[in-house]
Design a protein around this nucleic acid. Structure first.
Length: 204
DNA sequence: TCCAGGATTTGCT
DNA sequence: GCAAATCCTGGAA
């Protein structure tokens, strides 16, 4: 059993945590089943001064409230009328930052993921479906059974958490964040990070 | 392989 | 009322 990341790991700026989360293992235990995937793509959202962040300018609404709490909690939001996005809150209480988990590589619970996404067993998937299991923020949430019920969940608990993984020898690529064209100059910040040459990265 | 367009509902203005 | 930290499909190239 790998070591679980503790609260202090998350109590740093999102762009630092986002980079360090690459290669770590996200685990969701559902009905006694372990569903696990290696994080391969993240984005840092830096809060008050970041035009792309939901908490930009100190915006504080019910949806965003969890980001104002302490580090190491789950922020799940719903977009485009049908998809959930999973984030991890960073920094101390009162500093509303988070890291969006954009893509992961399936490790455990492959059949559960395949059923959630495509209503069939993992062995029945086509090659493109295999890749599409978790290569995007909405897809990842569907595969890992994460929805708004997990909003506010404590990642230092025993249901949804992140473990250490094999993080040596990975090369990290920095790029612009995806889907934030409305964010002015912030859309060009290189706050998206992914593992070079990993096939589950959403956009190359 | 690529691109354009549609899906669908929430959350805030 | 409108835009959204996305995904899927179909048709063209």
């Amino acid at each position: 059993m790998m070591k679980k990341l503790d609260r202090e790991f998350y109590n740093r700026d999102s762009i630092v945590v986002a980079k360090e989360l690459l290669g770590k293992i996200i685990v969701h235990e559902v009905d006694g089943q372990r569903i696990a995937a290696k994080i391969v793509e993240t984005e840092g959202y830096m809060g008050i001064l970041d035009k792309a962040a939901h908490s930009y300018g100190g915006r504080r609404t019910p949806r965003v409230e969890v980001m104002y709490g302490g580090p190491g909690f789950s922020y799940v939001f719903f977009v485009y009328g049908m998809h959930n996005c999973f984030n991890i809150v960073t920094r101390e209480e009162g500093v509303p930052q988070a890291v969006l988990i954009r893509a992961a590589e399936p490790i455990d619970g492959l059949d559960v993921m395949a059923r959630s996404r495509f209503k069939k067993e993992y062995a029945e998937l086509s090659r493109s479906q295999e890749k599409a299991l978790t290569n995007g923020p909405g897809k990842l949430c569907a595969a890992l059974s994460i929805d708004r019920r997990q909003n506010g969940a404590d990642l230092c608990g025993d249901v949804l958490y992140v473990e250490e993984g094999e993080t040596q020898d990975i090369r990290i690529v920095h790029s612009k964040r995806i889907g934030i064209d409305y964010a002015g100059e912030a859309k060009d910040y290189l706050w998206r990070f992914y593992i070079e040459n990993n096939r589950y990265v959403s956009v190359i």
